[in-house]
Amino acid sequence: MSMRIHVNIDLLLARERMSAGELASRVGITPANLSILKNDKARAIRFSTLIALCRELHCQPGDLLVCEEAPGPDDPDND
């Protein structure tokens, strides 16, 4: 069974009532990079980015990053 890190940005954005674009500008990353994070395409995240995300979303790294089972190749969510 392969595992992956899921980035819970959507949930935290909804909780904070903030748009993705606004978060990107507050954190200081491009919307394209935020999209990479949101779609679980990222291979790594810098501590500085993680700190900025936690600061803006008022959360802990554990709220943002969740280790879960990777979807199979036939899963429609797996793009």
């Binding site: 935020l34 990222a42 291979r43 790594a44 995240i45 810098r46």
Partner: peptide, 8 residues
């Protein structure tokens, strides 16, 4: 480079 491009 692929790794770096996907580091946020």
């Amino acid at each position: 480079k692929d790794e770096l491009d996907l580091t946020v």
